[in-house]
Design a protein around this nucleic acid. Structure first.
Lengths: 135, 135
DNA sequence: ATTATGCATACTTATTTACTAGGGTATAAA
DNA sequence: TTTATACCCTAGTAAATAAGTATGCATAAT
């Protein structure tokens, strides 16, 4: 399966942040309570999102996290790539895979590239704001 | 990652079968040699494809496997679903997952369903025949 | 200074993957 | 009818990955 809990939890966390208001500074403790995910695990995920520059951190008491951009400007694809490292469906499409020794004789590479493209197109077509609509 | 070696090897095996001719009866031993995959592993994959009715087996000496349909009628999606069990990007979309306890409060399910659909559309838009074009 | 929060790293455990092993069973050539 | 060939079935296992825990430090508001 392509998306692990890492990516799913990261997305839920980002939605939770967004739901608290565009510029709210939200501590992980609260997200953990609402989403039933341990603070320690969220810390790891948050760190990845900060590195990817889609989340900003504020240290100290009253600290927490703030979205680095309006929810409408944050693609779900960015969140997933930050959390999972990649959305590529097969290893040989990943950045650090290097040159495949079977490349020249491989009949399938173009197919996998097409699949990877279809996935990227979809996840980048949806923003965080799109997921905030109440049911 | 969504696609494991199981799916990738299954696809390579099916391409190999197709390359030997539409109605050729090909033993796994030969596929194993050409593709550098163990016969024992191929046996398991072949069994899944037979169950899915996209491959037929012929027992005994001079036996082997034959495509159950013209290559142009076999979707890559069928091969992947047979080998991997599913192409669903997240567990909660899989058939045997049951009802998600968070379903009513889940803001992400529609997104994952959309992604699953985008993936299915792509893998079902390509047939085995499409992958046979020589470079 | 105290305390609530994020930051960084390491460790542990569970699950899944990717095979391997060793038998069986059916078929058809000889 | 013998026998080689090849499919069929079930377990087992080592390696990798995923998932989560634990510990301690850094920072800033009070």
């Amino acid at each position: 399966m392509m998306i692990s809990t890492k990516g799913r939890y990261a997305l839920r966390m980002m939605i939770d942040f967004a739901q608290q208001g565009e510029n709210a500074c939200v501590p992980l403790r609260e997200v953990a309570r609402r989403q039933s995910i341990s603070v320690k695990y969220l810390e790891q995920l948050a760190s990845l999102l900060v590195q990817a520059a889609i989340l900003r951190s504020v240290r100290g008491p009253k600290g927490g996290y703030v979205l680095a951009a309006p929810a409408a400007d944050i693609k779900v694809g960015s969140i997933l790539r930050a959390a999972e490292g990649t959305c590529a469906p097969v290893a040989c499409l990943e950045d650090d895979f290097g040159v495949c020794p079977r490349r020249s004789e491989c009949e399938t590479i173009a197919f996998w590239e097409g699949l990877g493209q279809a996935i990227e197109n979809y996840v980048d077509s949806v923003t965080l704001a799109d997921l905030l609509i109440k049911k």
